[in-house]
Write a protein that binds this DNA or RNA. Structure first.
Lengths: 200, 200
DNA sequence: ACCTGAACACCGTTCAAGT
DNA sequence: ACCTGAACACCGTTCAAGT
């Protein structure tokens, strides 16, 4: 065989990425294997290494797509309302995304721990993009804060929101569970915002 | 060979667990392999399966020890002071443990995701034990809260504290980094506590 | 009864060989 | 130039065989 040339390298890369995303979404990160991807797209294992340097590279691209999807979800959630409610809505939206796309969402944080400083600039940009979305309502809520103070406040609250999502979404996830997590999330946001501006 | 009988099964189990803990502490979870453990204690792979049903079982025992160590660290940190400062100290102590024992600490949360509802009662008890420690200062700080409200507040703040530790401790961890994380942690705690009791 | 170690069914990655 | 697939160096787990 060899020399099929049915797809360009770019097309092949897209095929691999798409198949890999489907596997992660449907079966989770632990089900992602080179041989499975190859079978799924009708190529052999070697071909995957033509378009991705290794699994870590492929996973980083999967996670980049997830970060984009998270940004889209957060953008869509924006409404005309007060700054505190904006932040509440962003937190709820983040929880909703994490809950409805658990495997995909989880892979982002599962993986970045094993990367060891190989995070590229374009990837970091996608992370920053999500954080930039979160900063907006903070600017409206507490305009008196310095940029450093605001960035720290965003980090504190958002890492906190993520922590609640991550640790809460481990067990079974039915509708009542999600409502309960959302209530915990709302408590964190409410208390935090209250402390951020003692005299509104 | 065979029939060495140099150690009882209990002693063997302790040997395996101790060697495994050392590997996790020194090289991290990803370096933990049955063959390495076996070599380290002078037995062969098969012996490990005499005392642990599989790797998941062994890891759960490693994590149980880590949870105990966290509880000890939090207990030792207790001081004679106000309730809010107590919580600040607990949060700092948790960060200190996570930072100084990163590999071991990280394994607890790395792993529990892949367990799939196989968490035994005695393990859950160790988790509850840590949470019980955290509840104490909340009882002093906001005695008016119902038990449900207090438990939710503890979850909200502590999952938040954990989130900050987990996401912040990924990059390089030098002393200035830790100070920065501690400041973020303190902001979360301060704001949260302020919101918890609007009129103290 | 205790312990071995070969065997099995997996992994990710490479690269000489084909067209 | 593109693609294969055998080969390599790993994994966790099992279990017939030894003493």
């Amino acid at each position: 065989m060899a020399r099929r040339s049915e797809h360009s390298l770019e097309e092949l890369k897209a095929l691999v990425l798409s198949a890999a995303e489907t596997i992660v979404i449907e079966e989770g990160f632990s089900a992602l294997k080179v041989r499975t991807i190859a079978m799924e797209i009708g190529y052999t294992v070697g071909s995957i290494y033509m378009v991705f340097t290794n699994m870590a590279d492929l996973i980083m691209h999967i996670n980049a797509g997830t970060l984009d999807a998270i940004a889209v979800q957060l953008e869509q959630a924006q409404e005309e309302c007060g700054a505190e409610q904006s932040i509440q809505i962003l937190a709820s939206s983040y929880l909703r995304y994490a809950s409805q796309n658990f495997n995909r969402w989880h892979t982002v944080f599962d993986y970045s721990l094993s990367v060891d400083s190989k995070i590229t600039a374009w990837y970091k940009e996608k992370v920053d993009n999500v954080f930039a979305l979160l900063e907006v309502p903070f600017l409206a809520y507490a305009p008196a804060l310095s940029e450093d103070q605001r960035k720290r406040a965003v980090r504190a609250l958002w890492f906190g929101v993520h922590g609640i999502c991550a640790l809460s979404l481990k067990g079974q996830r039915d509708k009542t569970d999600i409502d309960d997590i959302e209530e915990t999330l709302a408590l964190l946001v409410k208390n935090f915002m209250c402390g951020l501006t003692p005299s509104p």
